[in-house]
């Protein structure tokens, strides 16, 4: 058995229930974890987990927008752009409200509103 620890949950139950109730169960089922990992007690905050999740999603963005979202081609750079603008664009893609949009609506629909907002904050905070 590999020595991998899983931090114990430290998320308030009430908040979890609130999210489940508001968003449905589609993304609240932690079944991805390798069944062979060894559980070691530990604590990690909800904020840290959210930050880590946003970082993992953001890694995929780099394949079209360049490392850290800094490359300008026909596809725009996203690093250092205003957070509110990035968020508006991402939420609009998700809602299919951007006429003529090509791949972004198909991508944005895979993520929650909170994740898209987290991505907007992540890229806005990077140097352009």
């Amino acid at each position: 058995m590999r020595k991998i620890g899983i931090f114990a949950f430290s998320i308030p139950v009430l908040a979890s229930a609130l999210f489940w109730w508001s968003s449905g169960p589609a993304h609240s089922d932690p079944q991805w974890v390798d069944s062979e990992v060894e559980v070691i007690a530990g604590d990690v905050s909800a904020e840290e987990l959210f930050e880590a999740r946003v970082e993992v999603i953001a890694m995929s963005c780099a394949a079209c927008h360049g490392t850290d979202g800094r490359l300008r081609t026909a596809i725009p750079a996203i690093a250092g752009r205003p957070e509110a603008l990035l968020n508006l664009q991402l939420q609009s893609f998700k809602q299919d409200r951007v006429p003529g949009a090509t791949v972004m609506p198909r991508i944005a629909r895979a993520y929650s509103e909170e994740e898209l907002q987290g991505l907007a904050a992540y890229f806005a905070a990077l140097d352009p």
């Binding site: 020595k3 991998i4 620890g5 899983i6 931090f7 949950f9 998320i11 308030p12 908040a15 979890s16 609130l18 999210f19 508001s22 968003s23 993304h27 609240s28 932690p30 991805w32 974890v33 990992v37 530990g42 990690v44 909800a46 904020e47 840290e48 987990l49 959210f50 930050e51 880590a52 999740r53 946003v54 957070e83 929650s112 909170e114 994740e115 907002q117 987290g118 904050a121 992540y122 806005a124 905070a125 990077l126 140097d127």
Partner: peptide, 28 residues
């Protein structure tokens, strides 16, 4: 930049989003 962490924490803090991350995380 250091501000990224702060920025994301701020986002996570004001909504129920934080609760979405009730996932186990792996480390040794």
């Amino acid at each position: 930049p250091i501000s990224r962490r702060e920025s994301i924490k701020r986002i996570a803090g004001f909504s129920a989003a934080a609760a979405a991350w009730s996932w186990p995380s792996i480390a040794i």
